[in-house]
Design a protein around this nucleic acid. Structure first.
Length: 424
RNA sequence: GGAGAGGUGGCAGAGUGGUCGAUUGCGGCGGUCUUGAAAACCGUUGAUCUGAGAGGAUCCGGGGGUUCGAAUCCCUCCCUCUCCGCCA
């Protein structure tokens, strides 16, 4: 959520920047400012009415003590009138307040200056490419075929147990999952991220604070009996650790990493883009989260990008880093870098990580703040990224490290975790 | 699942109808002392909204009610803890 302060002080700037996200904010901004001034006007009136009530109440107390009952009764009548007025004013104020908030949540985060204009994924800017170019055998297969022939991931069995999008990992398939999780967590903690193990279901307040509610309700699994939501990403519980907190300035940056399973309903998805491991209802991901002072958040973002890059390099995968254009960015992000790994077998780039700076957009809803040097409360910045998501990394490993016999060669960095060099 | 207790400022913990936004302790910050630190002592220290400011308003789990006046009384919902039961 954008801050009201920004909208009040620089409405034209907000409109101009949101245009980069192809969002026409002019009407909404105008309506918000109007609701805001109505709200303030009614609050001022309400406050002075209440102040008068408070004063009269004290007066009555004094009169009662002095035994001046008659006068006290007169004042009581006055207060009764004021009370009616204030009830009306309060209702007015709440109405304007609600109108304002309803509009406020419609505005996406403003993209930072580095965000390129553009409408679709085509307009994203390639920052750099790297990693090991692989030359695949002529008979290279997509990962779902490899997984089947090696019998390490059983999609059909998952359908039997649960449904599509819930694969069963078997044998070395299960082992490599565990290896990847440990490998990622170790790399992250080595880079200064504290490992946390949060709950996999959260309450409404948490889902609201990171922005999954109210608008993305249909994308989460909901445990109706207890009104819990299954987390779509570790970002939700981990970022919420600092909900409603005023953090000591000296404690920044706060760096956390968490492995969790993630649950996404992915309603409406279909087709070849979702084949195999490309899109699942339940998947494993290791997330990194940073809470930062505003002045340091872009430096922190660069650090996260370099960190994720180093892990992909260790996995010997061909990759590229994209700076997302305005049209392809998420609602909440101010700047996003996507990592993609090339799948020769599928002839396309697969997104394996997305690293974003949300500036104060998330912190505003979270009420995550710190005291600046003047003792004023300020919103912190939040950032997060996958480091990394398992299914697509596994898909990329299978496809890029296959040989002509359909065996998979495990990259050196992973072998101490897997305990084997080949999946065959 | 059954029974009971309770939700107050960063934490602990008083407060049961009016001068309570709230005693006190710890922690934090500033100072005195010290070569420096500790200890001791002194001072200071909640958030949000509103206002140019002085100030004003709101907040004692959430919502509603009683009252001229509620942290305090009533209703309701939520949550936490303890004991019993069940159990990885």
């Amino acid at each position: 959520m954008l801050t009201l302060k920004l909208l009040r002080e620089q409405p034209d700037f907000v409109i101009e920047r949101l245009a980069v996200k192809n969002f026409d904010a002019s009407q909404i901004v105008k309506d918000i400012l109007e609701a805001d001034s109505l709200r303030r006007a009614s609050q001022t009136k309400l406050d002075s009415t209440l102040a008068e009530q408070n004063q009269k109440a004290k007066e009555i107390g004094m009169l009662m003590k002095q035994g001046n009952k008659e006068e006290a009764e007169n004042v009581k009548k006055l207060v009764a009138q004021l009370k009616e007025q204030s009830k009306e004013l309060e209702a007015q104020m709440e109405e304007h307040n609600k109108a304002m908030n309803d509009l406020l949540v419609l505005l996406p985060n403003i993209p930072c200056a580095q965000v390129p204009a553009g409408k679709t994924a085509e307009d994203n800017v390639v920052v750099r490419e790297g990693g090991c170019k692989t030359t695949l055998p002529a008979n290279a297969k997509p990962h779902w075929e490899l997984a089947k022939s090696l019998d390490i991931i059983d999609f059909d069995l998952g359908v039997k147990l649960t449904g599509a999008g819930f694969p069963v990992y078997k044998d070395k398939g299960a082992k490599i999952q565990r290896a990847l999780i440990s490998f990622f967590l170790d790399r992250n903690t080595r880079a200064g991220y504290m490992e946390v193990q949060p709950p996999l279901v959260v309450n409404e307040a948490s889902a609201y604070a990171t922005g999954q509610l109210p608008d993305k309700e249909g994308q989460m699994y909901h445990v109706g009996l207890d009104n819990f939501y299954m987390i779509p990403t570790a970002e939700v519980p981990v970022t919420n650790i600092y909900r409603d907190c005023i953090v000591n300035k000296a404690d920044f940056p706060i760096k956390m990493t968490a492995y969790t399973q993630c649950f996404r309903r992915e309603a409406g998805s279909y087709g070849k883009d979702v084949r195999g491991l490309n899109r699942l209802h339940q998947f494993d991901k290791v997330e990194i989260v940073q809470l930062s002072l505003p002045e340091n958040s872009y430096e922190a973002l660069d650090g996260m990008v370099k960190h994720v890059e180093s892990i992909i390099q260790e996995l010997e995968l061909p990759y590229r880093i994209l700076r997302l254009c305005g049209g392809d960015m998420s609602f909440t992000s101010a700047l996003t870098y996507d990592f993609e790994v090339y799948s020769e077998a599928q002839q396309r780039w697969l997104e394996v990580s997305s690293v974003s700076n949300f500036e104060s957009f998330q912190a505003n809803r979270l009420k995550l703040r710190y005291k600046d040097d003047e003792g004023k409360t300020q919103l912190a910045h939040t950032l997060n990224g996958s480091s990394l998501a398992l299914p697509r990394i596994l898909a990329a490993l299978l496809e890029n490290h296959q040989d002509e016999q359909g065996r998979i060669h495990i990259p050196a960095a992973l072998r101490e975790y897997t305990g084997f060099e080949w999946i065959d």
